[in-house]
Design a protein around this nucleic acid. Structure first.
Lengths: 143, 143
DNA sequence: ACGAAACCCCGGCGATAAACCGGAGTATAC
DNA sequence: GTATACTCCGGTTTATCGCCGGGGTTTCGT
């Protein structure tokens, strides 16, 4: 149960877009990739997934790039991870499942929902704010 | 973020052992595998892992098999999953990580801990009790 | 109109892990 | 002392992750 680099990349990219949201200008894949040290051809795939999920919009052609589809405070981390990890396929677990299986899955579901609740409580805006706060702290203690 | 069959098998096997705990007699791999519909050669590996983690004891030779190493109410689900998924390797994330990365990992950690808290709160005994309750309910509504 | 800039789609590749199977040992009960 | 059952080691298959390259298409700027 580890944060996949896939998810991390997606979050970092969206965080970058969130920081740029006020300008209304699109950000290019290359730029995001360079800033966050993400392989650009891989990031392209991730952004395509996020676009299909309706989290970002793309603008084609010269001067194009990517934009958040909604305000940063209206995009929860749960949405991002669900999109990129493909949680659309919630296996409905067959009715042939044993009693034990049902109990085990029930508990797992509960744990999952606890994690989801935390992730649902954070938005991209929150992350951007946290990052800024951390940076201030770093400057304070700078030697 | 799905329950791996690996983890499910481990939990099912231990649940079976928990149900048999009162007798003090060991259960054989074959029997557990048959009861819970688990490939026996695969279950063998999982039980070996659980033994190395100190969750079960094995008794070799004829009339041998596996036993819980502790009482069912003293084994939390978190312990089981940690053992089988190998969470000993918590990547300490390099100090070269960007500010954004740190923030992202922090939130992820928080979500993870929420899930862990739930799993820590359940013991094998609890699952066995739940299963029994479900069975009673099934009998009630039996047509 | 044209060309450069950017996204878009598709397929493949290497590495890793999951899930599983087989064989040859080795300890223990009877 | 032999059958029983665990134990160790390794191999196979399948799938996913992380990543890259080749071509195509849309759009802006001039």
């Amino acid at each position: 149960m580890q944060l996949s680099t896939k998810s991390e990349y997606a979050l970092l990219a969206l965080l970058e877009l969130a920081g740029h949201y006020a300008t209304g200008e699109p950000l290019q894949i290359r730029q995001i990739a360079a800033d966050q040290a993400i392989p650009d051809r891989y990031l392209e795939q991730l952004l395509a997934t996020l676009r299909r999920s309706g989290l970002v919009r793309s603008q084609r052609g010269a001067k194009g790039g990517y934009l958040l589809a909604r305000e940063p405070w209206n995009i929860s981390l749960l949405e991002v991870l669900s999109s990129v990890e493909g949680l659309g396929t919630q296996a409905p677990l067959p009715p042939t499942a044993s009693l034990s299986s049902l109990v085990v899955h029930g508990v797992w579901r509960e744990a999952q929902e606890a994690a989801d609740t935390v992730l649902k409580g954070y938005t991209l805006q929150d992350l951007a704010t946290q990052r800024e706060a951390k940076q201030q702290a770093d400057i304070m203690y700078y030697i």
